[in-house]
Amino acid sequence: MSIAFTFPGQGSQAVGMGRDLAEAFPEARAVFDEVDEALHQPLSKLMWEGPEDELTLTANAQPALMAVSLAAVRVLEKGGLPLKDRIAYVAGHSLGEYSALAAAGTFSLFDTARLLRIRGNAMQAAVPVGEGGMAAIIGLEPTDVEAVCAEAAKGSVCQIANDNGGGQLVISGAKPAVEAAARLATERGAKRAIMLPVSAPFHSALMAPAAERMREALAEVAKTAPAVPVVANVTVSPLTDPQQIADRLVEQVTGRVRWRETVEWFGRNGVDTLYEIGSGKVLTGLARRIDRDLDAVAVNTPADIETVLKALL
């Protein structure tokens, strides 16, 4: 059995996430306390009590999701499952790549929380509210969606932001161009084309100011080689060199999250089991649609952790 840990991205947050881990395991509680300290904010209280609209803000959701993932990882490690001994690769969807790198030891927990706060604020500030947009396109091939984006852009920005698999792609860019692309996609046979309720055009060229801010922030933090390779979003290749990892994280701000290809890469390279570590089950559902030969399991409750430890130890 060859195992990869995957880590969820924005959209998997929910009020109450991680509270059962904190109540059951002191190692998990320590993670939430450290993230609160790093951010000078009682983020854990917001995570467990809400309000939901405040938790959903990009600057809060990103470090919050990472905290839940790392809490679960620390409990698994305390239970006798160190990554370097049993896990072949790690990967994360968008912000989840930071969770993966923190789990593998490239960044400290403290630094990861601060990086994600910077990332969230920088992405929000890159484009005035209302000028950017994103849409989910269901049921078209990537090449068809690329053609629709190119036709709709007309000198503006419209591009594929996420290739999530299961026939789902997300496009991002200037709001008028994205709206036009959504209409064109429907005309070209898409099953659905849905404008998304997001606050910024993530993973598009409009995020260039945020990419530069992350280049500066990543240059200032300590980085070490991960205990296991991370499969990067933008290149779908396993990385262990800290500078290459930082460079790919900068590219990720404006580049495509190639999640479908990442799951396919795991299947071609000996991985047979994916454990999604953290809040929700989004990546588990996507993996099952992308490669039915992979065993995909969500791990986010004390019972889930107990099941994993029994299976692997």
Rank of each mutant, 00 (worst) to 15 (best):
G18T: 03
A298M: 02
E251R: 14
A205D: 13
R188C: 04
G139H: 09
K78V: 00
R119C: 10
L206W: 01
T240D: 04
R292W: 05
A180M: 04
V73N: 03
E179D: 13
T106V: 11
L286G: 06
R256D: 00
A103W: 05
P238F: 06
N121K: 15
D33P: 00
G270C: 07
K310Q: 14
R288S: 11
W48T: 15
G270T: 10
R248L: 04
M47S: 12
N233L: 09
A222T: 15
H40V: 08
R117E: 13
A181P: 01
L140R: 10
I194S: 12
L81F: 14
A136M: 06
A246H: 08
I160Y: 11
A193M: 09
A135G: 11
P238K: 11
A298T: 05
T143A: 14
I137T: 02
V250N: 10
L184T: 14
L206M: 14
L115H: 12
R292M: 02
F5H: 05
A181M: 02
E276D: 14
V31Y: 03
M195R: 09
Q62H: 13
T273V: 06
L101I: 13
F266Q: 08
I171F: 13
I118D: 00
M123T: 10
Q41W: 13
G278K: 07
S12I: 00
V250L: 09
L76F: 07
V68D: 05
G9D: 01
A205V: 01
P197H: 04
N233G: 12
R183Y: 07
G80N: 02
S204P: 08
E306V: 03
D293Y: 04
A61H: 08
V35H: 10
L294Y: 03
G16S: 12
G120F: 12
L65E: 09
R117T: 04
E34I: 01
G132P: 02
P128A: 12
A153R: 01
Y275N: 04
N121F: 00
A88C: 00
L43K: 11
E151C: 02
A125L: 05
G105D: 07
R117N: 09
P226Y: 12
A100F: 07
P238S: 11
Q159R: 07
D53H: 14
D295E: 13
K154V: 08
V228Q: 09
V73S: 01
I245V: 14
A102H: 04
V257S: 05
D36L: 09
E220Q: 15
L55S: 09
G270N: 08
Q168V: 10
D241V: 11
S204K: 08
V282E: 04
D247K: 10
L312T: 13
P63T: 10
V148C: 12
T112V: 12
A67D: 03
A303P: 02
V198G: 11
P128E: 10
V230F: 07
M134L: 10
L109G: 04
L206E: 00
A211L: 03
G50K: 04
K175A: 15
E146Y: 03
P302K: 08
R183Q: 15
M123Q: 13
S44Y: 10
A100D: 05
S237H: 11
L46R: 13
L109H: 07
I87A: 06
F7L: 05
T307K: 14
Y275C: 02
V148N: 00
C158L: 04
E251Y: 08
R119S: 12
K175I: 03
D111K: 09
